[in-house]
Design a protein around this nucleic acid. Structure first.
Length: 266
DNA sequence: ATGACGGATCTAATCCGA
């Protein structure tokens, strides 16, 4: 038995439904986790996703900003939305699904970007990001009888080869030491496996995001690995592959993030 | 090196992203 999970920061799901459908038709993930849907629940495009076989859809929406959703061909249960930092943002949703005899809790995150200045004394957005990370440290991958998968736009590129230039980005939000150490601590304290790096170890570069602002994103290739797929250790041996769909950055009216898909085989 | 782009919003000019 195998199954696949995709994570994709879609940067407005309503605007981007044509490429969501294109992706689904070509890649057919069992579960699609979206971030930055930028709409409330009633505006979410349920009908086209259900028509494509995603009958189980849970949404944590917000007007204009943020927002996460899980669309699944597999039934979802025990869904939960955690109000990180107690500020009312829609940045997390989770649910349990079953594959064979396994129960798996899936978390879908959109971690705050953190603004420009990597100093919490002058930039509250950076403080919010660090507080959010701190709160993620209590999330344990290993729970009795239930495996875990954590995906999403975590807005941090933790390793040297997760950015186009380690030296040039050390003071740029998303790759500062306080963020990268914080993320490594979330992974260590929670007992997570970084599946993308299990499949593609350093020093190979991995990017999942390329800025809209580059004149030619592909030529410049100044990317960062901001999107992640983690799991509890017992799922590691069952990972078949990870695919980062770089070509999606060149699709019509693209998101600045590309879909990342993990396929497991039991 | 800041923002060249792109999206949402009280459709005009502003906030936000990272």
């Amino acid at each position: 038995m195998s199954f696949s999970i995709t994570t994709w920061n879609i940067n407005s799901v309503r605007l981007r439904m044509p490429i969501v459908e294109q992706f689904i038709v070509r890649h057919q993930p069992d579960i699609l986790c979206l971030q930055e849907i930028k709409c409330q629940e009633p505006e979410f495009p349920l009908a086209p996703l259900k028509a494509l076989g995603y009958e189980h859809i849970i949404i944590h929406g917000q007007k204009g900003y943020h927002g996460v959703a899980i669309a699944s061909r597999i039934p979802l249960s025990e869904d939960h939305r955690q109000n990180y930092c107690n500020v009312g943002d829609a940045r997390h949703i989770s649910a349990i699904f079953e594959r064979g005899s396994r129960r798996i809790r899936l978390h879908n995150f959109y971690v705050p970007a953190g603004g420009d200045e990597p100093d919490r004394t002058i930039n509250p957005k950076f403080g919010h990001k660090l507080d959010f990370l701190e709160e993620m440290k209590v999330l344990k991958a290993d729970t009795p009888g239930v495996s875990s998968i954590l995906v999403g736009d975590l807005n941090i590129a933790p390793l040297e080869h997760d950015v186009w230039s380690h030296k040039q980005l050390l003071k740029i939000v998303s790759h500062t030491p306080v963020e990268t150490d914080g993320m490594k601590d979330v992974i260590a304290k929670g007992g997570w496996l970084d599946l993308m790096r299990q499949y593609t170890p350093e020093p190979e570069k991995i990017y999942t995001w390329w800025s809209y602002r580059a004149k030619d994103w592909e030529a410049a290739n100044k990317g960062r690995r901001l999107d992640h797929i983690w799991s509890s250790p017992e799922l590691g041996p069952f990972l078949e592959k990870i695919e980062v769909l770089k070509e999606a950055r060149g699709w019509n009216q693209p998101s600045d993030h590309v879909p990342v898909t993990a396929t497991f085989k039991f």
